[in-house]
Simulated scan of single mutants.
Amino acid sequence: MNFSAPIVLENSRVRLRPLEIGDFDALKAVAFDAELWRYTLTRGDDAVSLAAYVRQAVEAREQGLRYPFAIIDRASGQIIGSTSYYNVSETDQRISIGYTWVGAKFQRTGLNRAAKHLLLSHAFGQLSCERVELETDSRNNKSREAMLRMGATEEGTLRSHRPTQGGIRRDTVIFSVIKPEWSELRQSVFQEFEVRG
């Protein structure tokens, strides 16, 4: 995966484009909500932590570790959150989707699912992946339910997997979607985002 190339993905609901330092002001409108960051590895619910979050995401892209996107609601043109590719393994044809957060008023609207549609389509298509992984804190029931609703398979829990906020070592629940499942998911869970023609 070429981390220096601009990747722009779009469907009927959302547009994903590379996250940039200049997105800080637009993100402030949706990020300053402590509940959004409750189970994340870092925080972004005030100016200092959000600036650090954006800077770290952009630096990780420059280092080839993570490809962060801004999620834009096409109806309003507003940036509503962010998501990323990471843990890229071209040898194993595997990639992870994560670091995803969406402003509270845009949750349960289908916009996160629309963003996942774009990321999965690109991963299984242009990136020739055989497997896409997603992970979340085991305490984050809302995230776990969302992954199941989009057709991902829960594979298990990695105990004491990563350090998280407050000096806690979190248990991480791993989900995946594999390439043979993608055709069926495109016609069911993600059908509304598929281009007809």
Rank of each mutant, 00 (worst) to 15 (best):
A104E: 08
D73F: 05
I178H: 03
S96N: 09
Q165K: 10
R186H: 00
W182G: 14
A5G: 00
S128Y: 14
K179M: 08
V195E: 13
D46V: 07
L119S: 03
R186V: 03
Q187F: 03
V132G: 03
S96L: 01
T100F: 08
S12C: 13
P68F: 08
R17E: 02
I79W: 00
D45E: 13
D45T: 06
F3P: 02
W182M: 13
M150N: 11
D45V: 10
R139P: 06
W37K: 08
R55K: 15
L41Y: 12
R131H: 03
W182F: 11
F124E: 13
R61P: 01
E20K: 10
L148Y: 00
E130D: 12
R17L: 01
S143N: 07
A51F: 08
S176Y: 01
R170I: 05
Q93M: 04
A114N: 07
V54K: 07
R186G: 03
Q126H: 10
E154D: 03
R139H: 14
T42R: 13
R170K: 08
S176W: 05
D23V: 09
S138A: 15
E135K: 14
V88Q: 00
I168E: 15
G110R: 05
L41V: 13
R66C: 11
G103M: 07
E181L: 05
I21K: 11
R186K: 14
Q165E: 07
V173H: 09
K105R: 15
L16D: 05
R169P: 00
G98P: 07
E145V: 01
N2P: 10
F175T: 02
S183P: 04
S183G: 09
G77M: 08
R38M: 15
S143W: 02
Q78G: 01
S183T: 13
V173M: 13
S143V: 05
E62N: 12
Q126F: 05
I97T: 09
S138M: 07
Y99S: 14
L134A: 10
A5S: 04
E154Y: 07
S4K: 09
L120Q: 06
D46H: 15
G156W: 11
S89G: 03
A60H: 10
L158Y: 04
P180N: 07
S96D: 12
T157D: 02
Y39I: 05
S4E: 08
G166Y: 13
A104P: 04
E184Q: 14
G151R: 05
S82K: 11
T83C: 09
T172V: 14
H117W: 10
S49E: 15
S183Q: 14
T164P: 01
S121R: 11
E10R: 13
I7G: 00
T157M: 09
R74P: 01
V177W: 06
G77Q: 10
P68Y: 06
I21T: 10
A34N: 06
C129L: 03
E133V: 12
Q56H: 12
E145P: 00
Q187K: 15
T83F: 02
T153V: 14
S138V: 11
A29E: 10
W37S: 11
S176I: 06
M147H: 00
Y99K: 02
S89E: 06
E10H: 01
A70Y: 05
D46Q: 10
G77W: 08
A31W: 02
V132S: 09
Q78C: 04
R159K: 14
I97G: 08
Q191V: 02
R74C: 04
G22Q: 05
I21R: 15
S138G: 07
G22C: 00
R186T: 04
I178P: 07
I21H: 12
R196H: 09
